[in-house]
Design a protein around this nucleic acid. Structure first.
Lengths: 208, 208, 208, 208
DNA sequence: CATTAACCGAGACGGTACGTCGGGTCTTACT
DNA sequence: AGTAAGACCCGACGTACCGTCTCGGTTAATG
């Protein structure tokens, strides 16, 4: 995202414009909203950003990388609310996540870059670093808070605990994405309640 | 594939070549394996199939529709094994599904068409009809078998039962897809066991 | 020029549009007039001709080849007038040639393609075939007519006669081009008279 | 080169590097040899000269001007040999000129800048001043020497004498350039003899 | 001998054109 | 009417140069 170029020491020549970076990412999000992933073009983004095409390509290798960076920042807005109980906390985060996936920028872009990443290992890595792994913090925070509240027992084996966290992450993210983008059904209070209760109920079985 | 053209009145003139249909779909799958979704071109598919581009466009509106049809048939191979218990049955189907998602044809194509479908309602409908809804049978069959075995209580309210089936479908499909394509971690026996136990444990909570 | 493609036997598929050929060459001449050689672009020519850029590239390898063909036809308009004497005939053809070189299409294009041809042997060959060699006919006709009128003796050695014809061609074409494009002075009646008298006077010396 | 910047008042600040000037012109000639006119780029010249692009543009307006200056100096090497007779002197200078036109730097550059100059009056003027007019001295010297030897009568009318000098210049330069660059035939002893005899024979007619 | 203004290298910048590729349509002759 | 072939229009691609613009850092005449 930022710090794409850790700038070893290219202290010579005209420095890159930070304003251009921001304008490009903003223009990319706007283009995603207006056109969707498949009709977004580099030329159009450049025009919207008031920037030359070469300036885009100097910073990003292509559409995929650009869109990942443009969208990644949105995912950092997610945060674990303190709703008083683990169930309520999970419900809150699921609703936030669903709302995010319903934004036109993310809806059209997320699956597309994941699809591309199946044939592009560096892209997968970039997605993981910029988007996916950053959200695991929510699972870890949630668990820590539940422990503090005494809602969940501590798992003795730390490796097993990590595997459980990963499982939960895949189940929560997967279910919400599938519900939103594949089934195209709303993630409403009712669904969240049912899902949360399934998850918490199952959690007990898994940890035993 | 399934009734693309329900042939309302194709009375006169030379009939369409059925061999061409099969060759095109096969060529499409081969191209997906070799090139992936984004580098697959209609011209290349036509060449591989030994067919003119016109022949493709006479049958399919574009790349999206063609790929959905080419891939859909693979999903029909999934079936619910009878492993003796609900847990074992679920585990079997999850492994089959994961294996399917690891085939290069599906891995690259599925997310891509879903991504396209976020801006293309008819395409979403086609995906739902050709791929998604067809697999819900597995959930329904599994539940029926569990009822027969006495492993699950019957839900009194049929509407609630339907919602539960949808929830399970989103959770299973979503979790496996996320694990496979986003996390890019293997769906192995160990993961399946943990996931199945989470699902079954949660199911009890949901139905109560 | 025409018959660029002697069409071995590509009798399959949609045939190339002859109208497009004509429109492109016409558009090229118009662009030369408006923009000159160095600012003429393939894209602009395509637009003027109401044709896609690919259609240009399907027929011509680039700007050089296209311009040679577009300009070549203009040179075929030159003809040897019958003004009653060799001197008057030469004067007539020199004036025609000078007028042709003063047309904006040719003025801007001719030197440019010749310059390119110094590094592009096929292009030089194309220029020679399409433009230069075609005009040698004027020298040969003029000489034949002079013989008929008894104004010039026959040269006994045919090889020497050919060398003389080449020399005359280089002198006439060279002098007119240099006067017009390098010195940028007018080729008027007075200059033509002086030049013709120099040429004819010298011719006697050469043939002896 | 010759007073590009007549330095009206460059009093203060760091003076321009004379070494850079020389390196740039040398690099330009080298690039002409390697790449030819149309593939020569300002950036490449700068790199070859070990100089920044800004340094080029501070001195020359563009490729045309730079190349004219780079090539002009070569033409100053021409000189009228004293071979004992007018015919021999002309032959000597023609051979020098032909040799010059066969150098790759000049061959590719001369026609190109002349072509550009048809749409760029200042450029034409620069070419005339830097290259063309400087060579007229050869004609004038040759004539003066011929007068001294008694090989040519004096022309009474100085205006007519000037017109004759221009005519000779166009004929000589034009013929040699056309022979070399358009016909692409060698300017060898035999051709020079024939051409010289044509020129001298014609000269008598013109002056009478 | 400090100031200072123009020089210089590097390289990013907004542009324009390039030549190619793919999409989807149309026009042939043939089946 | 379907088919193979291939030309057609269109729009986007990613690259190359153009000529300009910052940067930080010289360098020589002037004061």
């Amino acid at each position: 995202m930022q710090s794409r170029t850790p700038s070893p020491l290219p202290r010579t020549g005209r420095p890159r414009s930070a304003a251009a970076d921001a304008a490009i990412l903003e223009a990319t999000r706007a283009a995603l909203v207006d056109l969707g992933w498949s009709k977004l073009t580099m030329g159009d983004v450049a025009t919207r950003a008031g920037v030359a095409k070469t300036t885009l390509y100097r910073r990003w290798a292509g559409k995929n990388e650009l869109v990942v960076d443009a969208v990644a920042v949105l995912f950092d807005e997610l945060e674990l609310p303190d709703n008083g109980s683990l169930a309520a906390d999970i419900g809150g985060v699921v609703l936030q996540f669903a709302a995010l996936l319903n934004r036109p920028e993310t809806k059209t872009a997320l699956m597309a870059v994941v699809a591309e990443s199946t044939r592009d290992e560096p892209l997968r890595e970039r997605i993981r670093t910029s988007i996916v792994d950053r959200q695991k913090r929510l699972v870890l925070e949630g668990r820590a808070r539940a422990h503090a509240r005494g809602e969940l027992p501590l798992e003795a084996d730390p490796a097993a605990a990590a595997r459980t966290a990963d499982l939960i992450f895949d189940v929560v993210a997967g279910a919400v994405v599938h519900r939103t983008l594949v089934s195209a059904e709303p993630v409403d209070e009712e669904w969240v309640d049912r899902f949360t209760s399934l998850l918490l109920g199952g959690l007990a079985s898994v940890q035993s």
